[in-house]
Design a protein around this nucleic acid. Structure first.
Lengths: 109, 109
DNA sequence: ACTCTTCCCATCGAGAGACGATGGAAAAGA
DNA sequence: TCTTTTCCATCGTCTCTCGATGGGAAGAGT
C-alpha cells in the first residue's frame, strides 16, 4: 500500500551531477550530501545510487578513481567530466521546463 | 540515444487528477487540456494516458461513464471521487515537498 | 460515393528507473 | 569481542512511460 518514494523519478542523475559540480566525492558522501542539503527529504538509497553512478560513468559524464576517504576507508571518488558539466546544464534546463509546465497546470484556478 | 520524455515520471496521476478537479472530461480532452495549459510542454500520449486512467479507476480516485462528446463521438467521461479529491491534495503536497528539496540542491552555490 | 482527417478508445511489449533485500569488507569504538 | 559506521555493489521486482498497433465512427472535402 505504501509507496513512499523518496525521490522524484528521473531526477537522480541531475542531483548527482549537481552534487559533483563543486568537487570530487565518493558515493556514500553524495547520498549524505543530498540528504543534508534537502533537509532529509531526498534519501537516496545505495541501490538507487550505484546504478545511477554506473549510468553516469557509462555516458562519460563522470569519471572515478579509487582512493581513501576521510574515515580511512577504501572509497571510489567521482568527479565531473566537461561533458558531464554540459549535461548538468541540459538536464537542469529541461527540469525547469517541466516544473514550470506542471506548476502552470497546478495553478490554473 | 534520444530520451525525449515529454513528462516528468511520477507526475502523471497528479496532472490528471488536477485536470478533473473542475469537472468531467473524457480522456482525449484531458490530454488536450494538459498540453494546452502547459503551452505544449506536457504531451501525454494515449499509451501513457489510458493506463494511468485505469490506475485511477482501480484506486477509486475517479469514476467513469460512457457518453457522447461535443463532437458527437462515443467517449468515456471521467470525474473525481471524494477520495480522488483527497488524493489530489496528498500528491500535490508531496510533489511540492520534492520540488522544494530539489531546488535547494540546485541552488546551493 | 469515396477518402482523409480528426476524434476517441484501448492493449502489448520494451526499456528504464527506483528500491528492498542481500552480501561483502574494513575501521573505530564500546 | 561485539557492534556500529562507513563504503562498495548486484539482483530481482515493480512501476511507469511510450512506440507501435489496432480498432471505429463523425465530418469535411472532392
Amino acid at each position: 500500500m505504501e509507496k513512499n518514494s523518496e525521490l522524484l523519478p528521473g531526477t537522480l542523475d541531475l542531483l548527482i551531477l549537481k552534487a559533483l559540480v563543486h568537487g570530487t566525492m565518493h558515493g556514500y558522501g553524495i547520498a549524505q550530501r543530498l540528504k543534508e542539503v534537502s533537509d532529509d527529504v531526498l534519501q537516496v538509497g545505495e541501490s538507487s545510487l550505484y546504478p545511477a553512478l554506473q549510468r553516469l560513468l557509462l555516458n562519460g559524464w563522470v569519471e572515478a578513481e579509487w582512493g581513501t576517504s576521510q574515515n580511512n576507508r577504501r572509497a571510489r571518488f567521482y568527479h565531473l567530466t566537461p561533458l558531464g558539466r554540459k549535461q548538468l546544464g541540459v538536464e537542469r534546463q529541461e527540469f525547469q521546463r517541466m516544473i514550470t509546465a506542471i506548476q502552470k497546470v497546478l495553478e490554473t484556478a
